[in-house]
Design a protein around this nucleic acid. Structure first.
Lengths: 245, 245
DNA sequence: CGCATACTTGAAATGTTTCAAATCGGGTGG
DNA sequence: CCACCCGATTTGAAACATTTCAAGTATGCG
């Protein structure tokens, strides 16, 4: 890999939510990143841990979760390439949840030190990075709304809409289709329902021909209709308007 | 009010999560704050709005919420004095949810401009403020976990535990008791259940003598037991250890 | 080919919602 | 000071979405 290649998705992600100056872009490209491959279902950072690095998802999907009594698991967020799922560790000493690999993941580790230096040299980057954590929080808000107010089919539909836009923003959607390396059990733990019920609702969404989901690939057959079913409003993702769409 | 008085609760809040230098404290005290009283149930900031100020809760409670179809409302967070419930507006142009007054609230408005200047003069304050928004997000995570995995009584118990610690951190708890200016309908919209069910579960918690709730005042009768019922782990609040407890 | 994991199905049990009506409580005006 | 009123709380019974448990089928991988 050429130097800077690792950071390309981070750049795409940050440029989808903020604008960067040339020298800021170069500085980001020169961040020291050490990549590591993590097998599926393995933890990247455990709960309660204190870390000295931030992670960057380079390839594959990661997820954050909390474990509760009796083996219950709540998935807090799904992370796609370009995401920095534990940027918060920069200012929160102790992890209050774990970070794991959903699929096989290539993770880049960046020392906190390096990011602090970067911020010191380019105070404007505070805006981009802080903003990234704020959008992370905005996604939490929307998840709360889903869990609190939307029924099972709306929840699934809403998640599929969100993932589509996030993936498209970093160039990982192909038409209205994208790789979804997630089991029904993962979906159920993310959306606060049982895998049995996820299964039944997926079948319903398929029967209504809103989506196709086979072999880890999701296709949205009719975007406007899915958006309507989900009551989806993309505002919370705070994506910059794209010229090409 | 003496100058700086308005900021005292913000200081208490920030000092409960970060340590401040003397000159930083002074700078915070000298922030230009214009106070305004908002009657209960009125919006402070509407959804989709673009603001040029951040809010500070000085007295009473505020809350953030999203409205959905058919009048459904999801309450995202409850905010007590000392909280800055829309600090995120510093870097997110458009509100993706609304901010309202739960009870009668005195709100302090601080121009974004003033905060940006403050940060420029005291880059270390970035840590404290960013951290505040990250803890806000950590509370969202825990709410997601409640909505996704905990049944009704655990949800209520968990919220009561959280509010107790947050209020105590800014000196607003009296023993294990605190003012809770919230209706059962508010609780139900915050916890994703109906007010009818909130009512029944509250009765159950009272019958088990875990709490007393009367006239807008909540008393936790037996803290360790309530913590156990709620499976409450305060780690996510990232409060600094207190010498006095 | 065989094993493990993921997905699918059915039926009964459950927690929670819905709807509708009754009661409580605090503030206001007569 | 009482009567009234409104919002908040409480209650009951039926309906519903979702869970639970248990078994069966498909799928991918060594």
């Amino acid at each position: 890999m050429t130097p800077g290649h690792n950071a390309i998705l981070l750049l795409r992600r940050l440029e989808s939510i903020a604008s960067l100056a040339d020298e800021e872009r170069r500085a980001l490209e020169n961040l020291p990143i050490s990549a590591k491959v993590i097998p599926p279902h393995q933890d990247i950072v455990r709960g309660k841990e204190r870390t000295s690095h931030c992670c960057l998802v380079l390839e594959g999907w990661a997820y954050r979760y909390k474990m509760l009594h009796e083996g219950r698991r709540q998935i807090l967020s799904l992370h796609i390439p370009g995401d920095a799922p534990d940027l918060h560790s920069l200012y929160l000493d102790e992890m209050d949840h774990a970070l794991g690999a959903l699929s096989r993941v290539t993770v880049g580790f960046i020392p906190h030190e390096a990011i602090h230096n970067l911020i010191r040299r380019f105070p404007n980057l505070v805006a981009a990075l802080w903003r990234e954590t704020l959008i992370d929080a905005a996604i939490f808000c929307e998840r709360i709304t889903s869990l609190g107010q939307r029924d099972a089919s709306k929840r699934l539909a809403h998640l599929f809409c969100e993932l589509y836009l996030r993936l498209r923003a970093v160039g990982l959607a192909d038409g209205h289709s994208y790789a979804l390396p997630v089991t029904q059990l993962d979906l159920s733990d993310a959306l606060g329902m049982t895998n049995v019920h996820v299964n039944r609702v997926l079948q319903e969404l398929r029967r209504r021909e809103l989506i196709t989901l086979r072999g880890g690939r999701l296709t949205i057959n009719h975007w406007p209709e899915l958006v309507e079913v989900a009551e989806f409003d993309a505002g919370y993702l705070h994506l910059r308007p794209r010229a090409d769409l």
